[in-house]
Write a protein that binds this DNA or RNA. Sequence first.
RNA 1: CGGGGCGUAGCGCAGCCUGGUUAGCGCGCCUGCCUUGGGAGCAGGAGGUCGAGUGUUCGAAUCACUCCGCCCCGACCA
Length: 570
Amino acid sequence: MRYSQLLLPTLKEVPADAEIVSHILLLRAGFIRKLTAGIYSYLPMGLAVIRKVENIVREEMNRAGAQELLMPMVQPADLWVETGRYKKYGPELLRFRDRHDRESCLGPTHEEVITDIARKELHSYRDLPVNLYQIQTKFRDEIRPRFGLMRGREFIMKDAYSFDVSDAAAEVSYRKMYDAYKRIFSRCGLDFRAVQADSGAIGGSFSHEFMVLAKTGEDTIVVCNTCEYAANMEKAVVKLRIGASTETLAELKKVETPGKRKVDAVCDFLGIGPEKLVKTLVFMADGKPVAVLVRGDREVEEVKLKNLLGVADVEMADDLEVFNATGVPTGYLGPVGIAIRVVADQEVAAMQNFYVGGNEKNYHLQNANLGRDFQVEAIADLRQITTTDPCPECGGALSLTEGIEVGHVFKLGTGYSQSMNATFQDSDGQEKHFVMGCYGIGVSRVVAAAIEQNHDENGIIFPVPLAPCTVIILNLGGKDEKLTAVAEKLYKDLQEAGIEVLLDDRDERPGLKFKDADLLGIPYRLTIGNSYAKSGKVEVRRRRDAVIEEMTPDEAVTNLSDRITAELRK
RNA sequence: CGGGGCGUAGCGCAGCCUGGUUAGCGCGCCUGCCUUGGGAGCAGGAGGUCGAGUGUUCGAAUCACUCCGCCCCGACCA
């Protein structure tokens, strides 16, 4: 590629509507441009990076035995009605009618379509296992798109679906994808963790998220310092340490707490620690109030609550909703005699003689006890894990980090094959439902995540496998024919050595070329300038550590090609 | 959808509060000269329905109302 002929509009200034590094740098480096909220065009160099990721994904998927196909983006609503998701999916699913007034939607994911293919084309256990994948543009009408490629409404995703004869076979397919994902993200040069996303009621871990570690990550993940345990904060299992207490149950007493509403204020006033107090929080679960009991110094994990209640949405109730539901002002709410559903965190069930709200303004209750003074509908792990909690696997210490979810593997079971009646005939002659799995990778998000993890104040620092090209040649000779000839020869020689190279042949001053080369993040820079006239040597500089070596042009070609192949082989 | 903010040249912004010449500045772009190892300099030039509509006014980028778009904070997810 010749820079002079490339659409590569770099920006000196930081675009106003970009917040995080990857977004800023993708715009500044001329890789993407925004069309409208959450929807971007990939300019040539940006697309080159996307292709790099796609190819790595493709190679590893194929290696794992998956087959590529391509499904339609426009899908008939009927299919979604079959699985019940046409109602369930919500406004994120973009729906529309075609000219014949047929209900349609843009595919945010493809379980329905792939299951339709399976039920039509796969009939025998002999056809299984099968794993089909595609790399395609998805559309999800996100409530709030943000951060450039990180959370777009339109984005490129690799989605794969496996079909197996049995649970055990599906687990083998799952494991294959899990391993393939590890290889994919390693090859992309990313620092990542595979974290447990849902241990579910079944036990076992059938869903993992692949998280790239970066401060700008939208998810918090919990990592064990000693064992391999890693989980999304939302799902991290809190291991209860407190055994049944030996404390004898004391008499329930009403205590006055005038004007004391917050946990801190109540504890100060009563001279107790927050671990002796249980707070009663009200959530609106699909619009209906539910009281949740947690220890005074704990936070409710809404995802856990949502899963326990089996509802689509939970939200903290506001003061008015609380009052309307219970007749008690916030701050004095308690489980004793409360009028709404109550669930409790497991920790509360292990506590004795604690303080709770008195369900009356300016009063709390002392020596409350679950079972004796009030009942709850369920006792479960409902609170957020903290770094003072032990690892649920080995009991070791935990730490928290931020992560960007770039991949997700999920064992689906027979949910879709049942609702869509997708069956095959097994070796015993029985009709059985396919056991399915699905596996996603956010291809465009990988690019953003890679930049979040690989940049400095001057711009992007691409890992070699993701770089749009691996070498940029800077001809600083201007109109000097000798230097230009050297640059042109290097350009040709490198290409012949199979290296992707960008030749900056623009009639620009050196400073500008240096700045652009750094911004673009191309791993190696080859400079032909004044020193060549003196010593006959060109300069090879590595972007990541700015280490410079001087050598003859011929040496540069072999040197670069050796280093690049070595890095690609890693 | 709730809360906060923004919309003036390709990009970044000033002007608006307190209405009044021809709407400015930096970068970028075009022409010429000059310059060539870290975003040079000089000279000249092009480029604007001031997001849209309605209203107030002798007069609106500026005031009011409505709409649209975009960004940030929350629920969603690759």
